[in-house]
């Protein structure tokens, strides 16, 4: 300690050191589960991966070859694609309303509030709702892939709208005013100026919603029901990765659990790819 400067009391210095160390340790603790899960996923999941794992459907046999996860992968992709086709246009439409028309009107605030409410609704409750409205009422049969898509779309909708609103708000008003001042009608300003400018951000928000929906299990449980075989028809029951994993876990047979790990790794890799794509587009976006 140099003479002449007031020393920081040892107590304060120690408190500072202890707090820094404590925060570092807790941060590392937060990363421990990630390391453990990734380790297990890789060590158990990679062992399950093989060519036939991805090219055969589950057999449903109690003994012998359990089959692969082809129908689960394809079913997941089909259902999430339909969900995206429903949720993204509506979600962005609502976001456009909030930014271009609603602004801070009473009605817009109410809509905003309820979009927030939707964000907090547990996915299992959305599943129940779609079950009541679409399955119990026997609209187009009982369980069907498209009904699962509707449930997933309900989950994606608030995410798309909220992120869409943020991105659309980032489009500078100057751009809108410049176009309006040229005499362009409002819808053209939106279609030609606002949406293209916000496109990368809107894509990012939608892709993040896709990533979330792809991992959801609970809403599919009541709306699609589980099936082994491959189906490309969304009006019939479809398999999906999350349901495949859930079912295999429930059977607690080594062979099936092995398949569950393989499917889990596949699902996580797919979700990560979508997330990475979203972040990549976000980085290249001109808006923040």
């Amino acid at each position: 300690m140099s003479a002449g400067l007031p020393a920081v009391a040892g107590r304060r210095r120690n408190a500072d050191r202890a707090a820094r160390a404590g925060l570092l340790v807790l941060t590392l603790v937060a990363l421990v589960p990630l390391v453990l899960i990734v380790f297990e996923l890789l060590s158990k999941g990679l062992g399950a991966w093989s060519w036939t794992f991805f090219t055969t459907d589950p057999t449903g046999r109690f003994l012998g070859d359990p089959g692969g996860i082809r129908s689960a992968i394809i079913g997941s992709i089909v259902m999430v694609a339909i969900a995206t086709a429903i949720a993204v246009p509506i979600g962005i439409g609502v976001a456009l309303y909030l930014v271009e028309y609603g602004k801070s009107s009473r009605f817009a605030d109410v809509v905003r509030y309820f979009v927030d409410v939707m964000t907090g609704v547990p996915s299992v409750v959305f599943g129940l709702f779609v079950y009541i409205v679409l399955v119990v009422s026997q609209i187009g049969g009982t369980f069907a892939g498209w009904k699962g898509s509707v449930a997933l779309a309900l989950l994606m909708l608030p995410v798309v709208t909220r992120s869409g609103e943020v991105v659309l708000n980032l489009v500078p008003d100057g751009l809108r005013e410049a176009a309006l001042a040229l005499g362009a009608p409002r819808w053209r300003v939106v279609a030609r100026i606002v949406l293209p400018t916000a496109l990368p951000g809107l894509t990012t928000g939608s892709l993040l919603a896709v990533a979330r929906a792809a991992g959801e299990t609970a809403p599919l449980l009541f709306t699609v029901a589980f099936v082994n075989g491959l189906s490309l028809d969304p009006s019939a029951r479809m398999n999906s990765l999350p349901l495949q994993i859930f079912n295999d876990v429930g059977q607690a047979q080594d062979r099936l659990v092995q398949r569950a790990w393989g499917a889990a790794l596949t699902l996580v890799v797919l979700i990560l790819l979508v997330t990475l794509l979203a972040r990549f587009i976000q980085k290249r976006s001109r808006l923040a």
Binding site: T27, L36, A211, G215, E216, I245, F246, V249, V268, L272
Partner: peptide, 25 residues
């Protein structure tokens, strides 16, 4: 990098947490 690692936990689906939880944790 730390932020990305922390966010990665959110990319793991619920059912995978269940799988890991019951057979490993």
């Amino acid at each position: 990098p730390l932020t990305i690692l922390l966010e990665l936990l959110a990319a793991v689906p619920s059912v995978v947490y269940g799988l890991w939880g019951i057979f490993v944790l």
